[in-house]
């Protein structure tokens, strides 16, 4: 028998973050680390199936290409900046473009990985603040 604290395997039911279909998946967690994914058999809509993206989702979870911090590209060089200053830059440029070219010149792209409520907020923001209908999201499958 080995150290009891070490041996741990559990599956955590969750929803696939890739698109709006919301398939049920189980994350296989071994001592705090995600080691794989299984389709959730009892899920009412996906009924034990996943697509290519769902099946490979543990790969992006640990990917070094994943953007975890705000990065600003200035004259071809990329440097890490704080989230506040990055957002400040967005606000500044958004205001400038809106003032100069009008609402049709800006657009918003949201994500299926955000919650329904967050997507609603962005939609509200686009239509009331920027007064544009240019809003879309990534899950146009």
């Amino acid at each position: 028998m080995i150290d009891e604290e070490m041996v741990d395997y559990r599956t955590v039911p969750t929803v696939c973050p890739y698109c709006g279909a919301g398939c049920g998946m189980l994350l296989e967690v071994c001592s705090g680390e995600v080691i794989g994914v299984l389709p959730m058999k009892g899920h009412p809509s996906s009924k034990g199936s996943l697509c290519a993206k769902g099946w490979s989702s543990p790969e992006f979870l640990k990917s070094s290409n994943r953007l975890a911090k705000a990065i600003l590209r200035e004259e071809g060089e990329e440097k890490e900046v704080s989230l506040e200053s990055a957002l400040g830059l967005v606000v500044e440029n958004l205001n400038r473009v809106l003032e100069k070219y009008g609402p049709e010149a800006v657009g918003f792209i949201s994500s299926a990985r955000c919650t329904n409520e967050e997507n609603y907020l962005l939609e509200k923001f686009a239509r009331t603040f920027a007064k544009t209908n240019n809003i879309d999201h990534c899950a146009r499958l």
Binding site: E4, V7, D8, Y9, R10, T11, P13, L26, E28, L38, M40, K41, G42, H43
Partner: peptide
Amino acid sequence: YQMKDGSAIPHLFTSK
């Protein structure tokens, strides 16, 4: 399997 919200999900049971 462990029963969670009416579904069976794989689980490793220990003495705990």
